[in-house]
């Protein structure tokens, strides 16, 4: 059994593989469950919530080199609790794992880390903000100014992030419903980071600038038993407006969708199931699976009808529980860039 399978087992402690992605099955024994009308307490809520089963700090960024080449980076720290408590020492049931990636038009470099809480190898502290696992770190005096580092066998990067807009709350004030049965998570973002830093790649160092989007989400049962995966889009349009939209694919072939329109000033509009539509236009064979890498995305209420295309179709995250995640370009009614994440493609 290798690490990959171990994590697979970790993430599937009780349920069959068909029931949801990334341990997001519906059972939540003993764990706290998100409730409507949340009142967030910052900076504490930037930190970990060990009472909830799963939580993440999820940064993606669209970057550009001096020659105009487009790059994408991902930095994600997951927390997965075996029990709703946290302890000192090896007995801590909080498991941390992280994925980092750098995507270029030609290459996609991935690295993964796994650690146990309780011994100082990984964790998150809210103020001053510090999220870390091994040598990977996202830290700064506060949540608005962060330095992000990661390294793998083929790459490393160090990026400085500066927030240029407010936090954005999805769903009903940060209570994001994920199914018709009412499964939900707490979900907010900082989509207004300007990014500057250096990517160290096999061909050498590349200074980069661009825009970053940091998602914060935690829950204990965000997926319904009948949901098998999701397609998630974070798009930044040239006019300054942004769109977060996702559809959860259900085993009966239907989808459950939700979206947040983010104005250039940070004003948000949430859209219920059905308003946001995503249709696969083109499939790519990657890592032995068929994955859509060109999409038609519509949000008619905001006049959005765009084609979303992967920068690198082979942006497969070959980690313990693999998925597709990579930078995209946007054309059509709106132009821009963004990130696409697709899970549950077997």
């Amino acid at each position: 059994m290798n690490v990959r399978v171990l994590i697979f087992c970790l993430l599937w402690p009780l349920q069959a593989a068909a029931q949801g992605f990334a341990g997001l099955g519906s059972a939540a024994e003993g764990f706290a469950v998100p409730q409507p009308d949340p009142v967030f307490d910052f900076p504490a809520d930037h930190g970990a919530h060990p009472d909830y089963r799963i939580e993440w700090w999820y940064l993606t960024a669209n970057l550009e080199g001096p020659d105009g080449t487009a790059y994408g980076i991902q930095w994600t720290l997951f927390r997965s609790a075996l029990l709703p408590e946290t302890l000192q020492g090896w007995g801590d049931p909080q498991i941390w794992f992280a994925h980092a990636a750098v995507t270029t038009p030609q290459a996609h470099h991935v690295a993964e880390r796994v650690a146990r809480g309780g011994i100082g190898q990984a964790g998150v502290e809210p103020a001053p903000f510090r999220a870390w696992i091994d040598d990977w770190q996202m830290a700064g005096p506060n949540f608005d100014r962060l330095r992000v580092t990661a390294s793998g066998p083929e790459f490393r990067y160090a990026l400085d992030l500066q927030a240029e807009g407010p936090l954005v709350f999805h769903g009903e004030g940060g209570f994001s419903v994920k199914s018709a049965e009412g499964q939900a998570s707490y979900y907010y973002s900082q989509p207004f980071f300007s990014v500057e830093g250096v990517l160290s790649l096999p061909k050498g160092d590349v200074p980069v600038t661009g825009q970053g989007w940091l998602d914060r989400e935690w829950s204990s049962q965000p997926l319904s038993d009948t949901q098998s995966g999701w397609d998630w889009f974070s798009l930044s349009f040239d006019g300054g407006a942004k769109l977060m939209g996702f559809q959860l694919r259900q085993t009966d072939g239907t989808t459950y969708s939700a979206a947040t329109w983010i104005g250039a000033d940070g004003q948000t509009t949430s859209f219920p199931d059905g308003a946001f539509r995503a249709r696969a236009l083109e499939q790519t064979e990657v890592a032995g699976r068929t994955v859509p890498t060109r999409w038609q995305v519509e949000l008619p209420d905001k006049g959005v009808d765009v084609t979303v295309s992967a920068l690198n179709r082979a942006a497969w995250m070959d980690v313990s529980l693999p998925y597709w995640e990579g930078p995209v370009s946007v054309a059509g009614s709106h132009a821009g860039r963004g990130y696409l994440e697709m899970t549950g493609y077997e």
Binding site: M1, N2, L6, L10, P13, L82, P93
Partner: peptide
């Protein structure tokens, strides 16, 4: 969690997996 890939010390299914 950190043993290098391929090390297969025990069959953890017997105790309900890694958890």
């Amino acid at each position: 969690l950190t043993t290098p890939g391929g090390l297969s010390p025990v069959r953890m299914e017997a105790v309900g997996g890694l958890a």
